[in-house]
Structure formats: C-alpha cells, structure tokens
C-alpha cells in the first residue's frame, strides 16, 4: 500500500541510523536477501555456468544434476544461468520504472504542494487520479500494440503506474512541511517557493521517498513478472522470471520444477524487498516501530 501522505520526514543521521538498523531483524533479513539477489545479478553479467540463451535440444528437460544444478528447460538451456540473468532483467526493469515514476511524479507532487490550494494543485492531482484509473495492464497492452512488446515497454508501463504513487507521496509529505518553522524562516528571508522546495522541502523527503522506492521496487518486480508472463514484457531470448513461468505452464505436469524455481526466485526477492521496506519505515519512525 502506498503511504498515503501522513509519512513523517525521516531523521536522516547516518551514524545513529546504522547502529539501530543492524539491530532491526526485518531490515537485516531484507537487506541480506536483496544483497544476494543483487550479487547474483552482478555476477551473471560477467559469468554464468552456461550461456543462458544457448539452446541444446538433445539435452532438454534434464533433471537437476552436478552439471546443471537446477536442470535444463524444454530447449536444453541451463535453468540456473537463466535465473541469474533473469535477476538482472527484473532489477533493471523495476529500477528504470522507479526512475520514471519518481522523475515525473516527485516534481509534480512537489509543485502541487508548493501551489497548494491553487488551480495547479487541483489540476495535477486530478491528472494523477486519472492515470490511477487506468489499470496498468491496459497501459501495457496498448503500449505493446503501439510499439511492439519488449523490455522498454514493460519499463514504461510500470513507470507510468509509479508516477501517481510518487506524486501522492511527495505531495502528502511536502504539504505539512510548508507550515513548519524552518520553511517560514526561509520565506521571511526572501527565498522564492521553488528555491525553498529544492533547498528545504526535498532534502526532508529523501527518507520517505527511499521507503516508497523500496516498496515500488518489489511491486515492480511482481509487475515485470506478470507482464512477461502474459507476453507483454521481456522477449526471448532475454531470460526473465515471468517468461520462464509462461514457458513452464504447459510443462507443469511433466516438469513442475520449471515453474517452481522461477516462482521461488520471485517470492524470495519480493519478500526480501518488502522486509527491507518495512525495516526502513520502522527505522524512520520509531513510534511506529514500537507499535509493531
């Protein structure tokens, strides 16, 4: 669930943060999983056990063995290599989607907060609701029809979905700051609203935005898997967890592992990121942490 705007600004002091963080179980667990996935992805860029796109028909559907730790798929490709390279796809798509979402959404939210109560504020929030009303999947389908399916399509579709989320969070968190003393002080010293937004408001939103980005990262990974699963996202030969699930579907009765392994990869990654996000949120707001 997106933070609906009552998120307080983080106290972002690194040294205290680190010591508290290390004692927070879900933060530590989430960080560990995220690190493993990130390392696996990074490693796959330089090395995988086999070429994840190399097809070897005679060696298809091999069960796990010492040569192929996770077996091979219906074209004889090494499952472990595909999972490793698939992590790169997942991460890349979600990160770019967050880039799009935050890049467009945050300035919009900040502008709306800056113009609070005015027509611009109204218009921005209305457009926001408007985008929200279009199911992300429909956007993805339309994009595919217009530009052809592909990784970029998935990035844009998920990114568009992220825009209103970031706009709302930024708006919600920025609005109360405008009545705070330090903003008042800046105004009396003659700074314009845009300068105040950049110098005083934005730095105070970094924490909230990082928390939101973590949540959107995990949602993005789920969305990428779903889009690729129905053929709207990543295209062959690029490995993707969602596409692996798609191909595994007709082989469910024959080789269930082909569906189980990518599924577990998705769950582990998303779970890790969710724990990390929860951890970050707790750390940001100790009051909430005590309540949990």
């Amino acid at each position: 669930m997106s933070a609906a705007g009552n998120e307080p600004a983080l106290s972002w002091r690194p040294e205290r943060f680190a010591s508290r963080a290390l004692r927070h179980p879900s933060f530590v667990a989430g960080m560990a999983v995220a690190a493993v996935v990130a390392l696996m992805a990074a490693l796959s860029l330089v090395w995988t056990p086999y070429d994840p796109t190399a097809i070897d028909i005679p060696g298809k559907l091999r069960p796990p063995s010492l040569e192929h730790w996770l077996g091979t798929d219906q074209y004889g490709r090494d499952t472990l290599s595909m999972i490793m390279r698939g992590a790169v796809t997942s991460i890349a798509v979600s990160f770019v989607a967050i880039g799009i979402g935050a890049g467009v959404g945050v300035p919009l939210g900040l502008l709306a907060a800056q113009q609070r109560g005015g027509g611009v504020d109204q218009a921005i929030m209305r457009v926001n609701d408007f985008i929200f009303a279009f199911p992300a999947l429909l956007i993805a389908i339309l994009l595919r029809e217009l530009f052809g399916p592909g990784t970029l399509n998935a990035m844009i579709a998920i990114g568009v979905f992220n825009v209103p989320v970031f706009a709302r969070v930024a708006y919600g968190a920025a609005l109360p700051l405008w009545t705070r003393d330090f903003v008042m002080a800046a105004r009396t010293s003659g700074k314009g609203p845009t300068l105040i937004t950049v110098e005083h408001i934005l730095p105070n939103l970094v924490g909230v935005l990082i928390v939101q980005a973590t949540i959107q990262l995990s949602l993005g990974i789920l969305a990428e898997a779903a889009l690729s699963y129905i053929g709207l996202g990543v295209q062959p030969p690029n490995p993707s967890w969602g596409r692996m699930l798609n191909e595994a579907q007709t082989l469910m009765a024959l080789a269930p592992r082909l569906a189980l392994i990518p599924g577990f990869a998705i769950i582990a990654t998303v779970l890790g990121l969710n724990l990390l996000g929860d951890g970050l949120r707790d750390l940001a707001d100790p009051r909430l942490a005590r309540e949990r």
């Binding site: 898997a225 699930l245 009765a253 779970l271 969710n274």
Partner: peptide, 22 residues
C-alpha cells in the same frame, strides 16, 4: 501475510491447478 504479499497471483494459480486439477 508478508509471504502472501510476495507471491505472484498467477504463479499461485498455476500451483493450485497442478494440485487441485491435475
């Protein structure tokens, strides 16, 4: 619930089919 949020629903659907249908 943390795990429930992390499971892609279509994947869960595939497992349900494998178990309850096939």
């Amino acid at each position: 619930t943390q795990i429930g949020i992390s499971v892609p629903n279509f994947w869960f659907a595939m497992l349900l089919v494998l178990l309850f249908s096939i």
